[in-house]
Design a protein around this nucleic acid. Sequence first.
RNA 1: GACCCGUUCGUCUAUCGGUUAGGACUCCAGAUUUUCAUUCUGGCAAGAAGGGUUCGACUCCCUUACGGGUCGCCA
Length: 439
Amino acid sequence: MTVRTRFAPSPTGYLHVGGARTALFNWLFARSQGGTFVLRVEDTDEARNSDAARQAIFDGMNWLGLDWDEGPGVGGNCGPYFQSERQGIYDTWFEKLQGTGRAYEDGGAWRFRFERRLVTMLDLVCGEVTIDYREESNTPDMVIRRSDGSYVFHFVNVVDDLEMAITHVIRGEDHLMNTPKHLQLIEALGGVAPQYAHIPLILNSDGSKMSKRDAGAAVGDYPRQGFLAAAVVNFIALLGWSPKTDAEIFTIDDLVARFSLEAVNRAPARFDMEKCRWVNQQHLAKLSDVAFASQAEPFVREAGLPLPENFTAVAAAVREKVRLLGEVPDAVTFLLTDAIELDAEVIAKVRANAAAAGLLEKLALAFEGIGEWSGEAAKAALNEVAAAAAIKPGQLMFPMRAALTGRAHGPDLGDVLGLLGKGRSVARIAGFIQVLTRG
RNA sequence: GACCCGUUCGUCUAUCGGUUAGGACUCCAGAUUUUCAUUCUGGCAAGAAGGGUUCGACUCCCUUACGGGUCGCCA
């Protein structure tokens, strides 16, 4: 039997990280088992659905790299994959259920009569769970068809899982208490129940339930901030699942190779944005210079900065200084424009050294004398100036960094000098000396 | 309120009866880097509480506390 999993979101809002992780686990399980991953859109609630939300789901899945083998856009033998287009199928199953005598009308709606007994399920994550359905007041018969003729979630979800031959239902723990209902319905329908795996929910860093508007909740925000899809996939995979090794940085293929439902945790996990950023930094570090530059380019363009021909080198210079691609524009501004902002604290710090201005003047002079400019040549000149002044080259570094970048932190000075070129380097030093001496 | 699931450093986690309870993020301190960052080394920091079972319990059982989930003609 080949594994078939599905992700069945409702297009009622943006794609949530919790949903994304559910999709990821289903995808990982299918891929690791050589199975099929189905995307099914549960858009039965017309009032709450929107095209924008539908698109957000597709965009989010595509961005994360979670491709589906069957579903919207790719088709498959179990379509249509929008529940809004499956009315006829539901009608057929509903009639079949009516034939069993387990459905009864109530105020225009139709309810499913539960068997009054203990229902035991064997969850792949939670283990054996038994729910008491003997007392009707605790577990009233559920409505499966509304008085307006439309079907409710429990019914269509079960029918579709049967129709689509889903073998493993991996979903959030918020569905755990729905499972006995689904099991009873499947039994009445004469179907074979899939295996269930209820995964723990993702909480905010303060332990509250993560919902809309919480930081990090919307998958669509991640690309905008400059997260790499591979990093987000890596990070959310580690929320509630463990690869059982000390390694933490994985490609999506690594995850496929290591994934197993047995290693899914039972306790809810909190979302730690700091660590997510760290994971992103680790993934950025693994990119080639060219790949990094092309990822960073849209952000620089968006910031309204000019893109020089040597942008790859510019980006490479700041690569290990950033955790998010969104930080790149700020980090490279001083290399792309001459309108640099001088940090007041940095100026004060340089001024504290009375000799700084004089040294910088000598440095500018030495730079002027360089025939063939390069970062290395400039550094050699700096070393000579330092030697002549009987100071360590390191002492000249800070004033020079301040003059060239306006800041205390930034790329390697050799890189900066090489990228800036002779003219701009000298000009910035001259300008900085003026600021220093002005008062 | 009832029912279900859970509870190891602040956070993510390892441990499947015998460990100085390990790793990672964050933070702090050193080292390296002529500068910045990276990197490296070290440090702070945990078995919710109380009962059992056992020669021995973080690991098994019970109780309590706490956290989360579910109780719709939402999905």
